[in-house]
Nucleic acid binder design. Structure first.
Length: 242
DNA sequence: GCGACAG
DNA sequence: ATCTTGTCGC
């Protein structure tokens, strides 16, 4: 996938916060997603060598069938510590390297972490979306900021996630009797549309299929389903990356 | 000053 | 995130 990668990168927290404040004005919260999307990507990051190496994975699924069509991996030295609200500065450099390897261009990217449900309204999903100019959704497994009422226990239920007087996302029950997901818009999408696509990407498990597959690839565990291309031809025996 | 705090 | 086995519940 083609995009313009950042030239400079903040080294300390103060510079990172300044960068977030500069870039946040580029976030667009209107639906600018191909409808329906044809390709939905999932991205995730894992670590090796006691955290000294960052490993980023991208998977691209056909929508709405959720069939795997492409994967990409990248490893880079870890250069930024984990600081709550500055996650993107730790994970994005390697994530962008993996995305650059993609032949296909996704119509939508689901990120592990927050979108605008962030202290400065610029979580990793926003940062990624603005950087590659692609619609993104933040899907976090736990809360960064915001308050909400109890979420009904039935699959599909959700309640607004709020900060002061604004709605910054939704707490979504993707599965009965399971911890809910924290969904927020990243870039070029509205919350209702984001919730709808997260729902369609989460037919069975707690996490969206995109995130589940990217997780496995990033952490190098489990087996990935065969690529769709290696299903249609059975004479080309391509060995899968794992 | 004391907690909370995506991955 | 990562270190780690079995176990309880749908």
């Amino acid at each position: 996938m083609k995009f313009e990668a950042p030239t400079t990168w903040p080294t300390d927290a103060a510079a990172a916060i300044s960068r977030q404040n500069e870039l946040r004005s580029q976030v667009r919260l209107q639906d600018e997603v191909r409808s329906p999307p044809k390709l939905v990507a999932g991205v995730d990051v894992g670590f090796e060598e006691n955290g000294e190496v960052t490993r980023a994975a991208v998977v691209v699924l056909e929508f709405p069938s959720l069939q795997l069509v492409e994967t990409a991996l990248a490893k880079r030295p870890t250069t930024f510590p984990y600081v709550p609200s500055l996650l993107s500065f730790r994970e994005l450099p390697t994530l962008l390297a993996a995305l650059a390897e993609l032949k296909l261009t996704p119509d939508l990217i689901l990120c592990d972490g927050a979108g605008i449900a962030h202290p400065r309204r610029f979580g990793i999903a926003c940062h990624l979306g603005v950087t590659v100019d692609c619609p993104t959704i933040g899907v976090a497994k736990s809360r960064l900021i915001g308050t909400h009422e109890a979420v009904p226990s039935e699959k599909g239920a959700w309640v607004p996630l709020r900060d002061r007087d604004e709605t910054i996302g939704a707490v979504y029950r993707s599965r009965t009797n399971t911890k809910p997901l924290y969904v927020s818009a990243g870039h070029r999408i509205t919350l209702p549309t984001a919730l709808d696509y997260v729902r369609q990407c989460t037919p069975k498990y707690r996490l969206p299929e995109t995130t589940r597959l990217a997780d496995r690839l990033a952490s190098n565990r489990g087996q990935l389903p065969p690529l769709k291309s290696s299903c249609e031809d059975d004479d080309t025996e391509q060995m899968s990356l794992l």
